[in-house]
Design a binder for these strands. Structure first.
Length: 683
RNA sequence: GGGCCCAUAGUUCAGUUUGGAUAGAAUGGCUGCCUGCGGAGCAGUUGGUCGAGGGUUCAAAUCCCUCUGGGCCCGCCA
């Protein structure tokens, strides 16, 4: 093999970039002692400029007192050509001083392909990079009020969080996913009032109705009634107090009700292939006295103060993050505000205060792992009690995912943490913009749109229910699949499985491909459209690739045996025999290479997989991976359309292309796994 | 009034973190390609004063300032 034996798990693209980076660092060292030059090695903007480009000539104009093209030519002639002549195992095959001043390079695709094959085909599974070194990561997402059904706005949160979980998990991080269950807020109290005092039947008239859907409807109706009926509002106050104060009949009733709804919400999450480790029950947090401990810390450190006058008289308040205003933490009646409850939760996540919880098994979930829930009742004989505490070590990152309306409060949390522990910077707030409804969709839901942007509202009943959306998409897909399989013998359950796989993938992909700080305008027609930049496009490319391998009649073991021969014998011959090419102003010839342009483009993008993962972790934005999936699927479709594999008569070429197809499948499958798209070898 | 975010093709968006060569997709409209490895695909064509103005720079969609339009936040609600 041409690659360094020490590099057990090389990142193909990085190797090439590092080689060039090293080369230019040495050139700078010899040319301008003492001067720090920060150059860039980028992809070229256009194929005819080669693959990679360096802007160094622009940066040296003042030091060398020459024009960029003159410098570029000098560097190529005096430094780069001698370097390449001496270095036979270079990943660069040609260099050019362009008249614009750029120095351009072409990559040795044979070697690059060798690295990809090595990485994809020769280990049991593709080895992800060990970026995390088993660091402990906590991600909180979902956290939907347990009184209603999950809608597409919640789904953006869920999919974002779950994708991040998958990415951290697969890069060797020890990740735990939290879901905060606010069982003691007004929203839950509303439906308790509905059933206990407003005469709503506890069970839906149609027993088929999903219980969270039913409660969501009741919630809309009862909040409407409350606007007229002051008595119900009084009842709600009582209910809230009862729930907060412990074990009264109403508290138990509420707790049971929450569990029933939560169970249904988690079914939706599971259907979307989102998974959790722990449910943080808010009432347990209240019972745990975590707040009292946090309150004491805040007082001890003089972070909060008691207002003796002004608009917040007799309240405990805190200065806002900009120190301009104050925010109430404890009301004048001694009760704690909504915001205040986030403080002990954050301190607990960061392990700044001791863990007061016990943990009880909630259920086994779809991926085989267990969901736990907090509990505080020490007298109860706990079912499957977890002896170990939830935390075994301090988290390296605590990521809280909430929509951007919470940005101000989350930044306040961060500033409070900084005041308690100045060197603590592991708390990350990940915000994202809302999902809104298109005017047309709003109209379909029976709400006349007032503006072009319609915000969803659970309380008004103005939202797109996630379960219903999944069903709609699934139904449409079943029809489409049946249309395409009239002569075939696909079983109904197979069709259903495929439809399900495409439906949830379509939703997941549509919710993460867009930037976090852009509003997603949901339109029902667009959401059920399966053309263009959708997950189906990716899944279709994946299925096509599978079909080629299947029809090749080369079994996996044989493919790997052939690939080993290829990488051992063929690559060294190619790479050492190719003469180093230099060009000036005339572009790069490709006819000396054995690859077609569509193959080269696919190889180049497949090589970037590890870089893409790094970038995703840096930005905490799975969008990067979604875009990448689309890029490689597009490159594959071009390859598929233009380069024959099975019909290729040259056995070596045919095999080489089979390796490429297999590598594509493995890398796309990895990307699918990271963003939760279901890989289907047949559609 | 103060703070945060957005503005790029008819429409939905990449590209902005880290300035660089002719600003890219998808979708819509029009036109081709199924005896070919799956046409849920591919190719072609149409379509842009990168919201406006100023500044920095050899070079600005990208950095800075001002303005305009849109969204969100600013409660002893949650």
């Amino acid at each position: 093999m041409v690659i360094d034996d020490n590099l057990e798990n090389p990142n193909p693209y990085r190797i090439v970039l590092d080689e060039l980076g090293h080369l230019f660092k040495n050139i700078i060292k010899s040319l301008c002692r003492g001067n720090e030059i920060i150059f860039k090695i980028d992809e070229t903007s256009n194929e005819r400029y080669g693959d990679l480009t360096c802007n160094i000539a622009f940066l040296l104009t003042k030091i060398l007192k020459k024009s960029p093209p003159q410098i570029a030519t000098k560097l190529v002639n005096d430094h780069i050509i001698p370097y390449m002549k001496s270095k036979k195992d270079s990943f660069i095959i040609s260099a050019e001083a362009h008249q614009s001043g750029y120095i351009n390079f072409r990559i040795d695709y044979n070697k690059l392909f060798g690295l990809i094959i090595n990485k994809t085909l020769f280990s049991e599974e593709y080895k992800y990079q060990d970026i995390g070194n088993n660091e402990f990561i906590i991600i909180e997402h979902t956290s939907v009020n347990p009184n209603k059904a999950i809608h597409i706005g919640h789904l953006r949160n869920i999919i974002l969080g779950d994708s991040l979980y998958r990415i951290f998990k697969n890069t060797n991080h020890d990740v735990k996913v939290l879901n905060y269950i606010d069982d003691s807020g007004v929203q839950v109290a509303d439906i308790v009032v509905a059933f206990l005092y407003a005469g709503f039947p506890e069970t839906p008239s149609d027993p088929e109705t999903k219980y969270d859907h039913y409660c969501g409807d009741v919630y809309v109706k009862v909040t409407n009634m409350m606007e007229q009926d002051k008595l119900l509002l009084e009842k709600r106050k009582i209910v809230i107090r009862e729930i907060e104060n412990g074990d009264s009949k109403i508290a138990v009733y509420s707790s049971d009700l929450v569990k029933k709804i939560l169970k249904e919400q988690l079914k939706t999450c599971a259907e979307m292939r989102s998974r959790y480790d722990l449910l943080n029950i808010e009432s347990d947090m209240i019972k745990s006295k975590l707040w009292e401990k946090s309150f004491q810390i805040l007082k001890d450190k003089n972070i909060i103060y008691f207002a003796k006058e002004g608009k917040n008289v007799n309240c405990w308040v805190i200065k806002t993050a900009d120190e301009e205003d104050e925010k109430v933490i404890v009301r004048s009646d001694g009760t704690v505000t909504y915001f205040a409850k986030d403080i002990p939760y954050a301190l607990w996540k960061l392990q700044i205060i001791d863990d007061p919880f016990d943990y009880e098994e909630y259920e086994k979930q779809w991926d085989g792992s267990k969901i736990w829930m907090t509990t505080i009742d020490k007298n109860k004989q706990l079912k499957n009690h977890n002896e170990k505490k939830f935390f075994e070590k301090k988290p390296a990152k605590v990521i809280t995912i909430i929509d951007s309306r919470q940005a101000r409060l989350q930044n306040l949390i961060i500033s409070i943490i900084k005041k308690i522990k100045p060197d603590e910077n592991n708390y990350y707030y990940l915000g994202y913009e809302a999902v809104t409804l298109s005017p047309l969709t709003s109209k379909i839901l029976g709400f006349e749109p007032e503006k072009n942007i319609v915000h969803m509202s659970g309380r008004k009943g103005l939202f797109v229910n996630a379960d219903i959306l999944i069903d709609q998409l699934k139904t449409k897909l079943v029809q489409e699949i049946e249309k395409r399989n009239q002569n075939q013998t696909m079983q109904l359950d197979e069709i259903n499985k495929i439809a399900q796989g495409i439906a949830i993938s379509t939703i997941r992909y549509s919710l993460i491909k867009q930037d976090l700080d852009k509003i997603i305008v949901f339109d029902i027609n667009e959401a059920t459209n399966l053309d263009g930049d959708t997950s189906l496009y990716l899944q279709y490319a994946y299925a096509r690739a599978h079909r080629i391998l299947e029809k090749s009649d080369v079994i996996d073991d044989e493919l790997i045996r052939l690939a080993k021969l290829y990488s051992e014998k063929r690559i060294p011959i190619y790479s050492s025999d190719i003469e180093v090419i230099f060009q000036n102003d005339r572009g790069f010839p490709l006819d000396t290479l054995n690859f077609r342009i569509e193959e080269i483009n696919l190889i180049k993008d497949l090589a970037k997989f590890d870089q893409i993962i790094e970038q995703t972790l840096e930005t905490l934005n799975p969008k990067v991976l979604a875009r990448y999936a689309n890029t490689i699927a597009t490159k594959f479709n071009l390859f598929y359309e233009n380069v024959p594999v099975l019909k290729e008569t040259d056995q070596n070429l045919r095999n080489e292309r089979l390796f490429l197809v297999k590598s594509f499948i493995i890398i796309l499958n990895n990307v699918f796994d990271l963003i939760g798209i279901v890989p289907l070898s047949k559609i």
